[in-house]
């Protein structure tokens, strides 16, 4: 499964990469929305794991932009967030609350994607 990870924190990005790759995900990482947009010009991922709180363009803006683009509209988004409340967005299939247990991240991603089908 191809996953695009968008998070501005380098250690958090690396942690997600390590645990998700160990579980068989093919992970592409982006440190901000701009890098993510470049990555999305290639083959589309099966899911986007998107940090909500980022400097500059935040996760909501990116989720809105993905939903508005016919090419990326169908790509499911999972939000990574430490906030208790999130806006409801059509393409967001769920949220993973930070802090999370690293070794359970892959399981949580799969579980959220399973609820979509």
């Amino acid at each position: 499964m191809r996953l695009l990870l968008v998070d501005d924190q380098p250690e958090m990005r690396r942690l997600c990469e390590v645990v998700l790759r160990a579980e068989g995900f093919v992970v592409t990482s982006a440190a901000n929305v701009e890098e993510a947009e470049v990555a999305l010009q290639g083959p589309l991922p099966d899911v986007v794991l998107l940090d909500l709180c980022m400097p500059g363009t935040d996760g909501y803006s990116m989720a809105d932009a993905l939903a508005a683009d016919p090419r990326t509209r169908a790509v499911p988004i999972i939000l990574l967030t430490a906030t208790s409340s999130t806006r409801s967005l059509s393409s967001v299939v769920g949220t993973i609350a930070k802090p999370f247990r690293p070794t359970q991240l892959a399981e949580q991603v799969r579980a959220l994607l399973a609820t979509r089908t």
Binding site: M12, C53, A82, K98, P99, P102
Partner: peptide, 20 residues
């Protein structure tokens, strides 16, 4: 507020519960 959200989530994930 943005910084503290990020710190809370990251510290807990990296095994620093008291900081979180």
């Amino acid at each position: 507020r943005v910084l503290v959200h990020t710190l809370k989530g990251n510290a807990g994930t990296f095994g620093l519960p008291a900081l979180s």
